[in-house]
């Protein structure tokens, strides 16, 4: 898939354990435009493997010179956030995906309530720029443990004025979801991103109050389709290919010089379908192509997105 080549132009510590990275296009040109709520997947080439993490774009979608992301150092980092904090310097070159939006603002909504908890503020950063530009009716509720954990607070106050409502837990300012969600005019949409407890509380409050599901949005971060490594045996060619945890079967075959068919590489077109002859484990189907019955049969696999939890799988190729 096509990647964007970027160069790190600035790094700033914005809050405890949170770093803010600025990317510019490596060729000095403009970066692609994007919509509020978008993220990019950053590829991080560590010495023996490549990590791929998704981060929300914080910058204004109108700014085509830079992208900005915030990375919190995870206590139980798989390696990605640690790599970003420790290995990446100003001038580092990285590959990132094109922007993807799984958390867009509804364009038919009449009012928008954004609810952020802690680092969950990140997808809202680009959204508020978009909402300001379109002149939409909106307010941002920002809940945080204490001011030193409230990233971007100054910038947000400046941008939003009274449309920013802070809930500082250290000051015992509690976000009353029942009060917030019971007084919104028809046509309102609510968006939440934050700790799981907060997201769940908002979803259930909205549900109990009779908000239709289509008006309630929460950020679902796209995890890269990773799994466990296994061996691919190709019956016709007699080849054996090792599939790493973070590469697809198709990519592994291509890297091994196997000419496997493909078209869409997205699990939809059916072109790369392969016949499974044997496996000592279970197939993890991620595609949209095979019917449930076909998936259940264990005889077919779409190697562009699907994989297996096994030590080996044998294909008729």
């Amino acid at each position: 898939m096509s990647a964007l080549k970027v160069i790190v132009s600035a790094i700033e510590q914005v809050a405890d354990g949170i770093c803010h990275f600025t990317f510019a296009a490596a060729d000095g040109g403009e970066l692609p435009g994007f919509s509020g709520g978008s993220h990019v997947v950053v590829s991080m080439p560590a010495h023996n493997r490549t990590y791929r993490n998704a981060y929300s774009l914080l910058s204004s979608p109108a700014d085509r010179r830079n992208y900005q992301i915030a990375v919190r150092l995870q206590e139980q980092s798989r390696g990605g956030s640690r790599f970003m904090h420790e290995q990446v310097k100003v001038g580092s070159r990285l590959d990132i995906s094109w922007p993807v939006n799984l958390f867009p603002i509804s364009r038919v909504g009449h009012k928008h309530i954004l609810v952020a908890g802690g680092i969950g503020i990140t997808p809202f950063m680009s959204q508020v720029h978009e909402l300001l530009r379109t002149g939409a009716d909106f307010e941002l509720h920002y809940a945080f443990r204490s001011p030193q954990y409230a990233g971007f607070i100054d910038q947000l106050q400046q941008l939003l004025g009274k449309n920013l409502i802070c809930h500082d837990q250290s000051q015992r300012q509690v976000l009353d979801l029942q009060a917030l969600l019971s007084q919104q005019p028809l046509g309102t949409h609510v968006y939440v991103c934050g700790p799981a407890g907060m997201v769940d509380a908002l979803l259930s409050t909205a549900y109990e109050l009779g908000w239709p599901d289509a008006h309630v949005h929460h950020e679902e971060f796209l995890a890269p389709p990773i799994g466990e490594p296994f061996t691919l045996r190709l019956k016709q060619s007699g080849k054996s290919v090792e599939v790493g945890a973070e590469v697809s079967m198709l990519e592994a075959m291509e890297a091994a010089g196997v000419d496997a068919p493909y078209l869409c590489r997205g699990g939809a077109c059916g072109r790369c379908e392969l016949e499974v002859l044997a496996t000592d484990g279970v197939i993890e189907h991620h595609d949209h192509y095979l019917s449930d019955a076909e998936k259940g049969s264990g005889k077919k696999i779409m190697p562009c997105v699907s994989r297996a939890k096994c030590s080996f799988i044998e294909l008729n190729l």
């Binding site: 898939m1 096509s2 995906s97 094109w98 939809a268 077109c269 949209h288």
Partner: peptide
């Protein structure tokens, strides 16, 4: 049509 819809909904910029 269901598959085409799913595919298009995940269509990416630049691809």
């Amino acid at each position: 049509m269901d598959r085409a819809l799913k595919f298009l909904m995940s269509l990416q910029q630049g691809s």
